[in-house]
Design a protein around this nucleic acid. Sequence first.
DNA 1: ATAACACCTAAACCTGACTTTAAGTCAAGC
DNA 2: GCTTGACTTAAAGTCAGGTTTAGGTGTTAT
Lengths: 150, 150
Amino acid sequence: MYSIGRVSEMFGIPVSTLRYYDKEGLFPDMERSSGIRRFSERELEALRVIECLKASGLSIKEIRQFMDMVGEGPVSYSRRRALFEGRRAALEAEMAEMERVLAMLKFKCWYYETAEREGTEEGIEALLPDSLPPEIQVFYDRAHNKPKEE
Amino acid sequence: MYSIGRVSEMFGIPVSTLRYYDKEGLFPDMERSSGIRRFSERELEALRVIECLKASGLSIKEIRQFMDMVGEGPVSYSRRRALFEGRRAALEAEMAEMERVLAMLKFKCWYYETAEREGTEEGIEALLPDSLPPEIQVFYDRAHNKPKEE
DNA sequence: ATAACACCTAAACCTGACTTTAAGTCAAGC
DNA sequence: GCTTGACTTAAAGTCAGGTTTAGGTGTTAT
């Protein structure tokens, strides 16, 4: 059993945030002894799941709904599984988008590296043709074409 | 030259957001004809960069600082480059973290898949040893050990 | 026994990124 | 000439996710 201060140290999460999570129902049925929160292994595991779901893009309210499902027992296994499958798909999509962003960042790094060397941005396009890996060239095209409808 | 409504359609960004960006100084020296904003290719490219920097985790104020650098001309090439290098490193770190989160999500998918099949969560640990790819087993260890100091 | 410290609550406050509202301008079509 | 639709502004409102504050309790070290 851990005090809120101890858990705060262990996870690097402010005490105020842990209390806020509790208030939002993220630690259902947490024990207390004379009013004081007692974090057990169950709450620590909850906290690990919270950090994971949060990082996967879920809001506090949605995480709370997951905790409610846990409280329902075995009947919610399939819903819980569906939740994690959904998060997995969402995260994979997000990572794909980040690859795109990373390609633009790399292009911009190259661009300013070149501009710095040349002293000007004039005519950088002309330097492009073969000096960059294909995935960045592709991005260059995207970045400088007229934008498409969305 | 494009109207704000046209740009909104092209980029899928609300008109109110474009005006907000303008107010925050993200389109320095944008042209106007009798009060009405005129988006040129320069503003469209700015918008592409804004979306990229935003996706890389920069705040509106930080993006504004970048736009100010652009206004300074060639003297800021190296600072601009440093900015993009920093964003690139940050994004790469973030993606590494997301890989970790993804491993936990995959583990949880497996976990509830198994629980659903077994009808209970009892004894799932025992099923673990060789049924999962190593990167998930590693995560299972992380998830069930006592947490470390941070 | 008194100070220090960790804990408690409720409620107010904060920040970032927008969005909405209210009131007005302006050009084009009927 | 008047309505319609796209534009304008400043200011207020919204939402999530906390953080801070004010006032109080309970245990421990000097």
